[in-house]
Write a protein that binds this DNA or RNA. Structure first.
Lengths: 208, 208
DNA sequence: AATGCATGCTTTGCATGCAAAGGAGGGTGC
DNA sequence: GCACCCTCCTTTGCATGCAAAGCATGCATT
């Protein structure tokens, strides 16, 4: 299905920042650059609109430019959802319903993230960070929460990719990640939830 | 835009239960019954698919039939989000950023809901209940949370419309609603959040 | 009788043509 | 010189035609 290919491609480009927020996309331009007809492009644009990645704007669509307010709201929701997934992940771990390798993978990701951040590789750090949090959401075993978070992340990432990482934040991040993993490992759901929620809020604060 | 009309109409029909879960929808049937061409219908179906209201199934789409597991997950997310919106609503009320009429409206809705439930008007009770909770979400002033909850509600309602209201639940519901409103009125965010989250979980339990 | 295959039909997916809506730009009137 | 209007052009939205993919049905063969 070409429509699906176009959708995924555009989404990739937007999330990767190849299209800047506010940039305008017309059916014709896209269909020419991807060498398909306008029909599948239309479909793709509508799906992206549903995802909140682009916005209809008079003629055509523009890549969604997030206001500070919008970001504030998004982080509030993210905080609530990540508190939920962390809590669920901890409970499932306590119940022995988590693959043993999963937690080890997360710990590896967390360490790798620290290294990569220290090395100043921002792009890779962003990807790893997302993978880390996504790993926890997967561990929670709630596909709806996972999907909602994926949607949120896609939106947020567009506007935060260049505004990240002030000087001393990395250490705090590493510490919070470690405490979060420990709470999960101990099966302490409420604690994991509190840490995850607080972690998201702290991340938001940095983005002023 | 006809595509939009088709989308809204189909969505309405699905949420209202006119199409049963599992029922198959083909582009042709829909385009004939609504007297438009297949193009806008395709667009509408894709959007509904994005909303999780229908599912692609080999040929065509079928109205999403929710499994018990799926419902469990949906309610977990709903609980988290409604805890968030209740807490935000209480904080905003405390800060005086809520229109005075809004809270009164909610109280009116709550009382009306009690009456309607007592009278056994199930359909109306479902609508009022949704409006009540949606009112709180609006009061929270977080459009992302509101939209996420709307999506969840649409999905949930399809599968719960006929399974609602066991004998003694209405009294408990009324009580929980009242306590929730009071917590909001007092500006006690954490309390409101706890009540709302617990309320959603209790509702889920009833649906076994 | 059962199984495997082939054929035909249903249905989707994509491209293109056409009409209409919305803007931009230029021209004219004041 | 400025403002307003008109016209043309860009771009979307919808319909339809055509090709391909999937499925069921029926027939033949074992």
């Amino acid at each position: 299905m070409q429509a699906d290919i176009v959708y995924r491609r555009l989404r990739e480009l937007i999330v990767a920042g190849e299209y800047s927020p506010g940039e305008r996309l017309t059916e014709m331009t896209v269909s020419e650059s991807l060498a398909v007809s306008r029909t599948p492009v239309r479909e793709a644009l509508r799906r992206l609109e549903g995802d909140g990645l682009v916005q209809g704007a008079g003629r055509g669509v523009v890549v969604h430019a997030l206001t500070s307010d919008y970001l504030e709201h998004a982080y509030a929701v993210r905080s609530a959802l990540e508190a939920l997934t962390a809590e669920l992940a901890a409970s499932r771990h306590r119940a022995g319903r988590v693959a043993p390798a999963a937690l080890a993978d997360l710990e590896r990701d967390a360490r790798l993230l620290e290294d990569v951040t220290a090395a100043g590789n921002l792009d890779r750090a962003i990807r790893l960070n997302r993978r880390f949090h996504r790993g926890i959401a997967k561990m929670a075993g709630n596909p709806i929460a996972l999907e909602s978070l994926d949607r949120l992340w896609d939106q947020i990432i567009v506007s935060t990719r260049d505004s990240l990482v002030p000087p001393e934040r990395p250490d705090a991040v590493a510490d919070e990640h470690r405490r979060l993993l420990q709470a999960i490992a101990e099966g302490d759901g409420p604690l994991a939830g509190r840490i995850a929620g607080e972690h998201a809020r702290a991340t938001r604060k940095v983005l002023e």
